[in-house]
């Protein structure tokens, strides 16, 4: 007994929980311990990309017809041309605007409607099959209808993106609302919390994971919606660049546009990663 007390007293310098709690100490970790894995992963990613591009460049011409598969250098030249004459930026900017507007519109409407409807179980149950039926419609199939309704301007693309985003956000947020642990609601009731307290301090934060899932999965669909809208009917935007280039049998142009699109997708994914990191600290409490 005395030995243990002595040991505890000796270790008393650190942050110690009353009794039975874990001890927190400063850890001495070098660069390798902290970033070794990340460095390796990025090294491999770079190597893979370089190898792929090199093989592509070497095979394009002698083995494969550049008319069909293009080539990294051809793509590079085309991008340089487009950057020089401003084609790239004007068209990219239009597509980005459509994506962002469509996303904000669709996500906003989806989240707000989900928070209004999902908590009222009866209403949700009544509407559920219709929501699912509408959700299942391929959004491309709406394009002709949207052209009739909104013309072939940017409105049509924005709305096509918004509709795709809307359902994903709406359904995921509603699921988040429905998955709120009733025990947490009871806990607030025990504190004499009002319905407003329950909504703001339990349902809202608890369903945030659902909302964020919705936002995360829907971001690529904003891109898809906008580009499909442009492919169907337009005279500007990245979708237009693709259809225009392919009509001229300009595979360099098609690939160059695809490259820009994937760059946009990667940036969007990075944004989603930021959203995730903010909330993941508390997420699971299943233990």
């Amino acid at each position: 007994m005395t030995a243990t007390t002595g040991a505890v007293a000796g270790a008393g310098a650190g942050t110690e929980a009353g009794a039975g709690g874990p001890l927190q100490v400063q850890a001495a970790r070098g660069f390798r311990d902290k970033h070794g894995r990340t460095t390796t992963v990025w090294a491999w990613r770079t190597a893979l990309l370089v190898a792929l591009v090199a093989v592509w460049q070497v095979l394009s011409g002698p083995v494969l017809d550049p008319q069909y598969v293009s080539s990294p250098l051809g793509i590079w030249d085309r991008l340089a041309d487009w950057v020089a004459d401003g084609t790239l930026w004007t068209n990219t900017w239009i597509t980005i605007q459509e994506i962002v507007l469509g996303f904000v519109l669709g996500a906003g409407a989806g989240a707000v409607l989900a928070y209004l409807i999902a908590p009222i179980r009866v209403v949700w149950t009544i509407l559920d099959p219709y929501v699912m039926a509408l959700y299942a419609i391929p959004k491309v199939a709406l394009a002709p209808l949207f052209i009739v309704w909104f013309g072939i301007g940017t409105d049509m693309k924005v709305l096509l993106a918004a509709v795709s985003v809307f359902f994903l956000v709406f359904i995921n947020t509603a699921a988040g609302v429905h998955q709120v642990d009733p025990a947490l609601i009871d806990a607030v009731r025990l504190m004499n919390g009002s319905r407003r307290d329950i909504a703001l301090k339990v349902v809202l934060p608890a369903s945030m994971t659902g909302l964020l899932t919705g936002l995360r999965v829907s971001i690529p669909y904003a891109l898809i919606g906008a580009v499909i809208g442009e492919l169907v009917a337009s005279n500007r935007g990245l979708g237009f660049l693709i259809s225009d280039s392919s009509a001229k049998f300009d595979t360099d142009g098609v690939f160059a546009t695809l490259l820009v699109l994937s760059a946009i997708a990667m940036v969007l994914n990075g944004l989603v990663g930021l959203i995730d990191a903010r909330t993941s600290r508390w997420k699971p409490l299943d233990a």
């Binding site: 642990d181 947490l184 806990a187 301090k201 339990v202 934060p205 608890a206 508390w282």
Partner: peptide, 8 residues
């Protein structure tokens, strides 16, 4: 069972 708010 614990009913602590996991986000607090």
């Amino acid at each position: 069972h614990d009913t602590l708010m996991p986000w607090r």
